[in-house]
Design a protein around this nucleic acid. Structure first.
Lengths: 348, 348
DNA sequence: TGTTAGCACTCGCTCTCATAGAGTGCTAAC
DNA sequence: GTTAGCACTCTATGAGAGCGAGTGCTAACA
């Protein structure tokens, strides 16, 4: 059976209408609402064909049709029109980078918020990962009479502070000096590279304040581990409750539960690692609890290398076109910001 | 009508049973389950009295009884037995402070998580507020060739980092030195105190790097504003979905909505400012959207001064005793930690 | 041969009604 | 004062009827 022009128009009408209303679409509705110049009876015949082809289906015998996962797939691959970003969308996106974010985690958090806000779906984002993170700067700062502040910056401007408790703090100058010495020893090294030799040098650097050493080493480790771990940000889980698809509280709860598990999220997002943009519709998802949802992911790069993924989860009845535009826009945002950050730190 | 021993026992049985099962409690249930040595008919008579007194009510004529807000009130004020913290609860609490948290925001975040985890209700917490926050330390650190890291610590060890973009960064030594100079000028001052004179001195301190000044001032302001703003942490909103009270998705949604608005949360928490511990049951809440919920708040102090509030929101059918014990335990935790932090910074 | 009007049919939704069951309140006996 | 017994009330459940939306099929038409 051929998928002629007219069938395509009808399929498109069904999908558009269903995305909008969440109600099965009948032949009369299409005849009235979309001026295709044919009667409802003809539309019925065509719909019967479309159903046979597996592109639409009936929830029950006397209901209208809804798109099948396959129907959505065809729509996404061939029919869908590109969504042009509106003023509001552009403004929100701009505002994310306008905040002049210089720390990765804030950027990711803000991006997630913006995506969920713009799409009304649930946004999930992974922070950029470095297989072996290097220490960019590590410094000591005076804090008060009994503690120092250890500040560690890794590549990507992942910055963490740790308060180091000490008996009696050295003078400000001493603290700064110690920091410089530690920095001289550790700068540019990864966690793996910290061996007996380096620790020996650290001991020298710390001199009479060797007692801090175990604490400092521990904090360095936890910072680098944190930088290496896949950090996931999520925003807009509450949006789920607004969709009629999840008006059954048990369904909503089980989805909530799945989204709470970090493993599930990471699996979802890593699924799309190979492609710039990936759309997984309903049953195409390998994660069991997402069989009724669609997951759209996009990856962002630094240079040629893929660094992380941003994505959304929502009902299969989703505004694919808008989501894809928003995700693409956000990828651009992120890549621009990452480039700025790395340009700044090129020749440290 | 007197509230004799027997009536109290019956009321207690009704409340306990209802907290456990969420089903209206009938006279026969009480007669069978709680060995009060009286027949269901007698219990019925007593229940009739309790209803007249407003302590219990019938959802409909042929149903069992459920406690009224007034009934819960009596229970909370006079009947409830103190809940002794179990092993698991103690362990979770310990683990919060065992992490050796030295930054307020982490402490609050972890506390919120622990509370919602232990109680299965939704935890809300405000960070300690200082009316006029002073700068404890402010330093510059080298970051890379085109940016410096500005680190600001206020009292309470509220620490923030800001990346300051510069054309070409000065040498490490210069950066540290500049930081020390800025620190010398600003340490111990509040935002209000930064006036022309201080800014003049800052200009001197920065010398040829005056171009950073506007940025630095902006970051100082945002850091101090952030430290002064009431920060609210929330955890466990998802728990709400698990209660039969909110199996109606609209109810769940409207509560979610209310919890999303920071104003509502702040109002909820500030309600209890005067008391160490406050229990607001159902209609006792002034916030409209909480009329079906109970809100329990506890305040924590530093020295004699109240600094913040921790609390939970849940259905009126709540395990008041357990929640109160958990909150009290957490207050102790927080106060201990705050004390440690402030002892460390006493003579800066 | 494709299109359309007409019509019978299907099936979910809603309303009504009957029934069962839980729980009460009242009465009378202990 | 307590309790057994019983009539009564009200909800929850399920069956059955009617409605309406929408289909599929047939026959007529261009």
């Amino acid at each position: 059976m051929a998928l002629n022009e007219r069938k395509i128009k009808i399929l498109q009408a069904i999908i558009n209408d269903y995305i909008e209303t969440a109600e099965p679409v009948g032949s009369r509705t299409i005849a009235k609402k979309y001026n295709l110049g044919i009667s409802s009876a003809t539309i019925r015949n065509e719909m019967s064909d479309l159903e046979e082809m597996g592109l639409i289906l009936q929830p029950h015998a006397s209901a209208g049709r809804i798109p099948s996962d396959m129907g959505y797939r065809l729509y996404v691959d061939h029919l869908m029109q590109k969504h042009e970003l509106g003023e509001k969308e552009k403004t929100v996106m701009q505002s994310v980078i306008a905040n002049n974010i210089s720390q990765i985690d804030y950027l990711m958090e803000e991006t997630a918020k913006a995506i969920s806000h713009l799409t009304n779906y649930t946004a999930i984002i992974t922070e950029p990962v470095n297989r072996s993170t290097r220490i960019k700067q590590i410094r000591l700062m005076p804090l008060d009479s009994a503690s120092l502040l250890l500040v560690i910056a890794t590549e990507n401007n992942f910055i963490k502070n740790h308060v180091v408790k000490v008996g009696i703090a050295p003078s400000d100058e001493e603290v700064l000096h110690l920091g410089s010495c530690i920095n001289a020893v550790l700068q540019g090294h990864t966690l793996q590279e910290i061996d007996g030799v380096l620790i020996g040098r650290l001991k020298n650097a710390l001199g009479e304040y060797q007692e801090f050493l175990p604490n400092i080493l521990k904090d360095i480790e936890s910072t680098i581990r944190a930088a290496e771990k896949v950090q996931v940000h999520m925003s807009g889980t509450k949006n789920i409750l607004a969709f009629p698809e999840f008006s059954d509280i048990d369904k909503a709860r089980s989805l909530f539960q799945a989204l709470e598990e970090k493993d599930v999220l990471v699996t979802l997002l890593e699924e799309g690692q190979g492609n710039d943009l990936q759309v997984l519709i309903g049953s195409e998802n390998t994660v069991q609890s997402m069989k009724d949802c669609s997951v759209i992911t996009a990856t962002y790069k630094m240079g040629e290398e893929t660094r992380g993924t941003i994505g959304i989860v929502g009902p299969t009845r989703m505004d694919y076109s808008q989501v894809i535009s928003v995700l693409n826009g956000m990828v651009e945002n992120i890549e621009k910001t990452l480039k700025k950050l790395s340009d700044g730190s090129k020749n440290t």
